[in-house]
Simulated scan of single mutants.
Amino acid sequence: MSAEESQELGRRGVMRVKQYLESTTYLQMPWTAYDHGKLCLLQKLDGNKKQYDLSGFFLGDRRFPLYVESKKYTTPGGQGTAYDEYLANAYSITARAIKEDMDQEIEFMWITWHPFRLNHWTRLMDFDYIKEAVLKRPDVLGEIDSKPPEEVVDENICRQVSRRLWMVVLTERQQELVLSPEEVKLAMTVLKREGA
């Protein structure tokens, strides 16, 4: 697959994710990396920025921001390594927000079309799995004053991140169950979710 084909597959995947999430009537996902890139950026402890595929927020009582990583894979591919990076970034972003007293309780969602790491599936959102991912990517910790990463990773933040993670596996056929944008608008007039 060429780079252009891969990018187009990714773009189509992001638009499908947007439609899927908004059709739940619990989320509004107005920004994608393709049309509002800066609104999909978050800053990590090391000062670098991470761009997510989509960003938006929950409707109703929750009102938390949500940042989504979409993987339109047809095989497990390199998802395991990418998922470790996703967890390390979620930790770093959350730790930075807490450190700067700016924590908005951002939630993070991984959406894929193909499961991966099946031998670890039940642990993929556990706090200790997050800690392992951060230790594989200590660069996300920023300046740690020559301390070993094991001493810097905060298990309480790992636990907070664990409670803020979502995992969704989609299939092509699920698209048949998704409300159209017109149906979502109609449903929202009846549901009257706060923020919609």
Rank of each mutant, 00 (worst) to 15 (best):
residue 26 Y to H: 15
residue 10 G to A: 09
residue 118 L to M: 14
residue 139 D to Q: 12
residue 176 E to H: 11
residue 122 T to N: 14
residue 33 A to N: 07
residue 71 K to P: 03
residue 159 R to E: 13
residue 76 P to R: 01
residue 145 D to T: 04
residue 168 V to D: 09
residue 35 D to C: 04
residue 102 M to R: 15
residue 161 V to C: 04
residue 104 Q to M: 14
residue 185 K to V: 10
residue 106 I to L: 11
residue 36 H to Y: 11
residue 6 S to R: 15
residue 117 R to W: 10
residue 10 G to T: 05
residue 78 G to W: 03
residue 29 M to V: 02
residue 84 D to P: 02
residue 134 V to N: 00
residue 78 G to I: 04
residue 132 E to K: 10
residue 13 G to D: 05
residue 89 N to V: 03
residue 111 I to M: 08
residue 121 W to R: 11
residue 76 P to F: 04
residue 34 Y to P: 00
residue 171 T to R: 06
residue 154 D to N: 11
residue 52 Y to K: 03
residue 196 A to V: 06
residue 90 A to D: 03
residue 188 M to L: 15
residue 80 G to K: 07
residue 19 Q to Y: 06
residue 98 I to R: 03
residue 88 A to H: 01
residue 6 S to F: 06
residue 53 D to F: 00
residue 105 E to V: 07
residue 120 H to G: 12
residue 116 F to R: 00
residue 45 L to I: 08
residue 44 K to I: 01
residue 10 G to S: 08
residue 114 H to F: 12
residue 157 I to H: 00
residue 161 V to A: 02
residue 189 T to D: 13
residue 143 E to D: 14
residue 134 V to Q: 00
residue 64 F to V: 15
residue 106 I to P: 03
residue 100 E to L: 11
residue 21 L to Q: 01
residue 30 P to M: 02
residue 51 Q to P: 03
residue 74 T to V: 10
residue 122 T to G: 13
residue 16 R to P: 03
residue 159 R to K: 14
residue 127 F to K: 08
residue 22 E to V: 03
residue 165 L to W: 02
residue 21 L to R: 01
residue 184 V to L: 06
residue 127 F to V: 09
residue 57 F to W: 08
residue 31 W to A: 05
residue 126 D to C: 10
residue 63 R to T: 13
residue 91 Y to P: 01
residue 194 E to A: 12
residue 131 K to Q: 13
residue 156 N to H: 13
residue 137 R to T: 08
residue 100 E to N: 14
residue 109 M to A: 14
residue 89 N to C: 06
residue 103 D to F: 03
residue 108 F to W: 05
residue 148 P to Q: 10
residue 9 L to F: 06
residue 88 A to C: 05
residue 69 E to Q: 10
residue 181 P to A: 09
residue 147 K to C: 10
residue 78 G to P: 03
residue 125 M to P: 03
residue 187 A to W: 07
residue 85 E to S: 11
residue 135 L to V: 07
residue 151 E to H: 13
residue 83 Y to I: 02
residue 49 K to M: 13
residue 177 L to M: 13
residue 111 I to F: 05
residue 12 R to V: 12
residue 22 E to Q: 08
residue 192 K to A: 14
residue 61 D to S: 10
residue 167 M to G: 07
residue 107 E to G: 06
residue 10 G to N: 05
residue 34 Y to M: 09
residue 118 L to K: 11
residue 163 R to Q: 15
residue 2 S to V: 07
residue 63 R to W: 05
residue 173 R to G: 09
residue 191 L to K: 10
residue 150 E to H: 04
residue 145 D to N: 12
residue 159 R to W: 07
residue 186 L to Q: 15
residue 144 I to K: 02
residue 74 T to A: 08
residue 9 L to R: 11
residue 87 L to N: 01
residue 36 H to N: 13
residue 11 R to G: 08
residue 56 G to C: 05
residue 21 L to G: 01
residue 172 E to L: 11
residue 62 R to F: 07
residue 139 D to S: 12
residue 121 W to A: 15
residue 87 L to Q: 00
residue 101 D to A: 14
residue 165 L to C: 08
residue 50 K to I: 09
residue 175 Q to H: 11
residue 61 D to H: 08
residue 114 H to P: 07
residue 116 F to C: 04
residue 113 W to P: 03
residue 119 N to C: 12
residue 132 E to N: 11
residue 160 Q to A: 15
residue 161 V to L: 02
residue 182 E to P: 06
residue 146 S to W: 10
residue 183 E to A: 10
residue 157 I to Y: 00
residue 167 M to S: 10
residue 127 F to A: 15
residue 111 I to V: 14
